[in-house]
Design a protein around this nucleic acid. Structure first.
Lengths: 373, 373
DNA sequence: GCGTGACGGACTAAACAAAAT
DNA sequence: CATTTTGTTTAGTCCGTCACG
């Protein structure tokens, strides 16, 4: 009972109308710029609004407009660390555009979980929906559920969906292929892949890129896939358990940098040197990778850019503007010493060119960009 | 005009009532458990609800109840990587308790930014508010703004606020002190601190803990604080720029693990060995720290637990139950080789005891806990 | 125990009044 | 004077809740 909301006779549109000496609908017009209003009356209304710090009640408004200026965000509960800040970016772009966002977590089984979440979002009359769908199955469940809102899916499986749903993601297949080709170019032939959880699109794309590169160079028979989960621990254990009796690999493309750290530590524990004995490459360009000894070859994902682009795309859709069905973003190969055959001393700092300063507003946080992202 | 909301004759309470052969108010009663309803009718209604996946429109409801079952979350835009998943945890606890949460990002200047955000939240009639306020100034601006909701602040400055506002955070001061004392116990005397951004409470607490430990052991005159930002780059540059002409430190307590990685790399580049020449300790227990060579001494933060506790505390407040004004959570010192004087070979995996399985529901994600967190 | 009907606060179509052509 | 243009009001609507009968 203490929770009973305050009785604040919240200044309504009626009060403003009286104060300004006009009818409520005129006030509405001033607020929404719907139709012409005399300058005189407009000013009177604006004065009244300012005087009372009036803000129209969202509920009452949404009840009739079926719009809420709220955007739904659905995230797969099992997101990895890297994905977590995707969320922050989404919020931020939405925030800047004057939208609020509500986030819901979903998990397997997709169908029921999704049903529940969608019902909740529906009850909020959200204007649009972004779904972070790294695991296989979610995107399909979504398509099957017949979502009725503008929808953008963040996913590395860059295939078009039906109904004008957009997919935004990074070209992980291509990036992984480049990375593998880099290893091949270094002269490595026995190139293995240490895989993250197999039910992730990200993993599937990475494995596929690796495989394709091997196939094109006729090296497939030397390849081997070691199945792990995304956890560093699984990577460590996998290396410790591997008996290498059929011969050691030259190089291992590890599915994530964090796994690569663990793999390197395990190799070290077994007396195997990197990169002298085995070259290692990772994926993610995690914060520590450049400072590792040896610095880790990897692929830099610009997750913040993906997130911002996804939200921007959604905002376009909401405004009825045309959008691409598939937005593929490039991932960048970063070669460092962990995959270089001829050891050469060089300074540990990257000499990466500054990213081209794009003018697109949604890519530019309006203040500084924290280097952790 | 394409944006005109879909006409979907959204199944309303009326449709359910007809389907079940009762009046709308009976449906309302079933949903809210307001008054007694015959078992027979109740079942009919429940069946109808299930059939149509009906979910009452929150806006229509809130319009009259003045309650929304929505919780606001305010986050400082400049949150670090570690903070990002705090957000996920907040959402999850709220969602388990049947609340939805809307998130807004704020930034300096606090006052105007806050004003804007609060106005938005007010228009949503949120039931409560959680603020992630790592930077100095936000919490004060909040207190000054006279927020009218139940409010919980996540912040490492564990001081009570007025008006029954609760603060939840980790005891970073104590943890940093312990860490510094550990260094002292190892026999180090010239212990420096490499600081993160000075306008963060986290940094201030860490620096203070370091300072207090030095003072209590009369080692303050050997200490030196190197001011950096949280970025790894700043740490790297700081080490490279340091001329050590007044003597080298024995040990450096670096404000974050990611900075520590960079510091170690920079020291290595200058031919200084860790820990033989200088011991290093970090803070955060980032994913890679255990696999570093040498494994990094650090402090493990349980940010998920902080977040869950904060949300739980807020829920208590909302329900009118008493809560503590300050909830201080412990942070755990993890000693690894980077700070150990007598080098001793040991396996790189921690033998940390499993965290005591607390029974508190808000601390237990209902499915698995991804190892990345 | 259950149905009827009056709200809640803002939007909007249609009806009306005033000014301009 | 009749006809458009422009501005304004009236009444009905959105979807639940709650006091009453």
């Amino acid at each position: 009972m203490a929770r009973r909301a305050q009785q604040t006779t919240r200044t309504g549109i009626l009060a403003i109308a009286q104060e300004a000496g006009v009818s409520p609908s005129t006030v509405s017009r001033v607020i929404n710029g719907t139709a012409g209003v005399t300058d005189e009356k407009r000013k009177a209304v604006e004065a009244a609004i300012a005087k009372y710090h009036y803000e129209p009640n969202r509920f009452a408004r949404s009840l009739v407009t079926h719009q809420s200026h709220i955007i739904g965000i659905l995230i797969d509960r099992s997101i990895r660390y890297a994905t977590a800040n995707t969320l922050v970016q989404l919020e931020e772009v939405a925030s800047n555009a004057g939208y609020m966002s509500v986030t819901l977590t979903i998990d397997k089984p997709w169908k029921v979980s999704l049903q529940r979440a969608l019902a909740q979002l529906r009850s909020l009359s959200i204007d649009g929906l972004v779904v972070i769908a790294p695991r296989v199955g979610l995107a399909d469940a979504l398509a099957a559920s017949g979502v009725q809102w503008p929808l953008v899916i963040i996913n590395s499986l860059l295939l078009p969906y039906a109904h004008g749903i957009s997919v935004v993601g990074e070209q992980q297949l291509e990036a992984s292929k480049h990375l593998t080709e880099h290893l091949i170019a270094q002269g490595y032939t026995r190139i293995w892949h240490m895989a993250g959880s197999a039910d992730w699109h990200d993993e599937q794309q990475r494995a596929l890129g690796w495989k394709q590169a091997l196939q094109e160079h006729n090296l497939e028979r030397f390849g081997k896939l070691i199945q792990c989960t995304w956890s560093a621990q699984s990577a460590y254990q996998a290396i410790m358990a591997e008996d290498f009796s059929d011969g050691m690999p030259d190089a291992i493309f590890v599915a994530s940098d964090h796994m690569a750290y663990a793999a390197i530590a395990a190799l070290r524990a077994r007396g195997i040197r990197v990169p002298e004995d085995i070259a290692i490459a990772g994926y993610d360009d995690a914060e520590g990778s450049i400072f590792l000894d040896p610095p880790l070859t990897t692929i830099k994902q610009d997750l913040p850019a993906v997130a911002r682009t996804a939200m921007y795309t959604l905002l376009q859709k909401i405004e009825g503007k045309p959008t691409d069905d598939v937005v593929a973003m490039e991932a960048q190969l970063i070669v460092r010493q962990s995959s270089i055959r001829a050891q050469q001393k060089c300074p540990p700092r990257d000499s990466n060119p500054e990213p081209t300063s794009s003018q697109a507003w949604w890519l530019q946080p309006n203040l500084f960009y924290h280097p952790f992202f």
